[in-house]
Design a protein around this nucleic acid. Structure first.
Length: 285
DNA sequence: AACTAGGGCAACCGCAATATA
DNA sequence: ATATATTGCGGTTGCCCTAGT
């Protein structure tokens, strides 16, 4: 037999979250960490939301370790580089940018970076200069990202096989970027977007290997492992009116993180007070 | 001042993978 | 072993804000 259904959609509230809902969810997660699953969260927290919605809200907005505001130039460069190698695998890209969510990066890509690259004459799908795509026999291509990152694509003009391989890669990316196209199919019948195809030439790239194989073992660039171990409810949740502020965030209470990683709580210093309070406005403060 | 169009972003949708009864 | 719930993820939508007219 299977499990109970996640939630019936009847009576489930949708749309923008209010500050009150945020406060309830935050209080519940921090106060009941590890003692339930997402399905039970809305009921126990007193929210008329689907568990999925709660998870999304927490992951993309409420987590204290999230950074707010626009991506820095360095982060933007990293996103471009990673996108050139990984395509639209936003969660993989986000994993390398501490405090950033896949949704945030995806939005930033679609609204900012994409336009920048196009403006620079670079195809945001293939990371190849737009005019070059019309001349695939060009010997060696080097594209420059928004600032300084360089993506080098080698193609021996007289080696039809190698060029074919590159084309395959480009087409793969072309189908996986931008939202206008169909979802990527990275390995033929395999529709798993997260693992990539074995025939991707970038899989031979040490960086890609690192990204795909060791991401769970290595900390993201410039991030301290498990920053949430320093998190205290007293310091952070107190910013929400009416939330208990006596709980302390110690090792013992973080065991649940191992089971419910999606509840990841991070560096309290990154919690932006204003961004939390004004969360219902939909604006990015 | 009022209206419109476009941009930005939060949230939702639906599918696939994984976990579990 | 199988069915089904749960989770993760990428794509898409729709609302809100702002700039332009």
């Amino acid at each position: 037999m299977g499990r109970q259904p996640c939630c019936d959609k009847l009576g489930v509230k949708r749309g923008p979250w209010t500050a009150e809902e945020d406060r309830k969810l935050m209080a519940f997660i921090l106060g009941n960490a590890g003692r339930c699953c997402w399905r039970a969260v809305p009921k126990l927290a007193g929210l008329l939301r689907c568990g999925k919605s709660c998870r999304l809200r927490w992951t993309n907005y409420l987590r204290p370790d999230l950074k707010r505001g626009l991506l820095t130039d360095d982060e933007e460069r990293l996103v471009v580089d990673l996108h050139a190698k990984l395509g639209n695998r936003w969660s993989k890209i986000a994993a390398k940018l501490p405090g950033r969510t896949d949704n945030e990066i995806k939005n930033h890509w679609n609204t900012h970076i994409k336009k920048k690259l196009i403006k620079m004459g670079i195809d945001p799908i293939t990371h190849v200069p737009l005019e070059v795509r019309k001349q695939p026999q060009q010997a060696s291509l080097s594209t420059t990202s928004a600032q300084s990152s360089t993506i080098t694509i080698e193609c021996k003009s007289n080696n039809g096989q190698q060029c074919q391989q590159q084309d395959t890669h480009i087409n793969r990316d072309a189908s996986s970027v931008g939202g206008e196209s169909s979802p990527p199919n990275l390995s033929g019948t395999n529709t798993d977007n997260t693992t990539g195809g074995s025939n991707n030439i970038h899989d031979q790239d040490p960086l890609v290997k690192w990204l795909l194989e060791e991401e769970d073992d290595l900390p993201a660039i410039g991030i301290v492992e498990e920053p949430w171990l320093d998190f205290t409810v007293e310091n952070d949740v107190d910013k929400f009116n009416g939330i208990p502020s006596t709980m302390s965030w110690d090792i013992g209470t973080t065991d649940w993180l191992l089971d419910y990683q999606d509840f990841g709580v991070g560096d309290s210093t990154l919690l932006d007070d204003a961004s939390m309070v004004d969360s219902s406005s939909g604006s990015n403060l």
